Amino acid sequence: MNRNLTLLTALAAALVSPLAIVPAAVAQAAPAAAAAPVAMPAQIALIAFEQAVFACNEGQVAAQGVQKKYEPKKAQIETLATEVDSLKKQLQAAPATLSDEERASRLRAIDTKEKQLNRDAEDAQTAYNTDLQEALGKVAQKLSVSMKNYSQSHGFTLLLDVSAQGSNVLWALPSTEITQAVVDDYNKTSGIAAPAPAAPSAARPRTTAPAAKPAAK
């Protein structure tokens, strides 16, 4: 699991893994004090919660919004990277008659700009990841409520999150995996349309989303 999405993982673990759901009919039918435990047949479902957060329309809109915010910073970093590369090429192409003093001066200039480039890139990546995590965390909170409602309305008694790489689910029938169904249901209730495809960008700051992990089958 990617270290930069611990917020989503913690939220999924707290709200989803595992999520015991007691049908309302059973709770209402049981007498207050003298009720004997009622054995309920298990109805288990699986969900890749992190994948659902990124896949729903609202999650995609949130991610694109963060990417758009950092486009100017990305352009600045690209410009500085081009400048550093140009200085290196100029030094490589310099004649052998270049004095040691001039060579050392150019090396210092390259080193200074390269350190600035690395610092700016790291700062931008950290800020980008923080904003992305915050934006998707808000989506995750709302999606978790919709997910529970969906599970209850479909009679599931146990919902397991299989987002983590170390999931203990080794095999399950494909019909028990409800990630897309929950995403579709949330898209309907949220009223948010799918965003237009983002324009290709050569060096967009990388997201730290975990690779999509299919549910165990």
Rank of each mutant, 00 (worst) to 15 (best):
D100L: 13
N57D: 02
A52V: 01
K89N: 11
A93C: 04
A63L: 09
K74R: 15
S99H: 08
A81D: 10
K69P: 04
T82P: 07
A52T: 00
K68I: 10
A94V: 03
G65P: 04
L80Y: 01
G59V: 02
E83M: 12
P72M: 07
T82R: 15
D85P: 11
T97Q: 09
A63S: 08
K74G: 15
L80Q: 04
A81C: 07
E58H: 01
L91M: 11
A94I: 04
A81T: 07
G59I: 01
R103C: 05
V53M: 00
L91V: 05
E101M: 11
N57F: 00
A63D: 04
E58M: 08
K89V: 11
N57Y: 00
Q60I: 02
A62I: 00
E71T: 14
D100A: 15
F54H: 01
D100P: 08
L87M: 14
A48K: 09
Q92M: 13
A94P: 03
K68Y: 09
E83G: 11
A93P: 06
K74T: 15
L98T: 12
A75N: 11
S99Q: 08
P95S: 04
Q67I: 10
A63W: 00
A75W: 06
A63K: 03
Q92I: 14
A96Y: 10
P95V: 05
A93I: 08
E78D: 13
S99P: 08
A63H: 03
F49W: 00
Q90S: 11
V61T: 05
Y70W: 09
L87R: 11
F49I: 01
T82D: 15
Q60R: 10
L80T: 00
A93N: 13
K89T: 13
T97Y: 03
A81V: 06
S99C: 07
D100I: 08
G65I: 03
E71G: 09
I77F: 05
T97K: 09
A96F: 10
T97G: 05
E71F: 13
Q90I: 07
A63Y: 01
F49G: 00
A81Q: 07
R103M: 06
Q64G: 06
K73A: 15
F54G: 01
E102I: 11
E102A: 14
T97S: 12
I77S: 02
S86Q: 15
K89F: 08
K89Y: 09
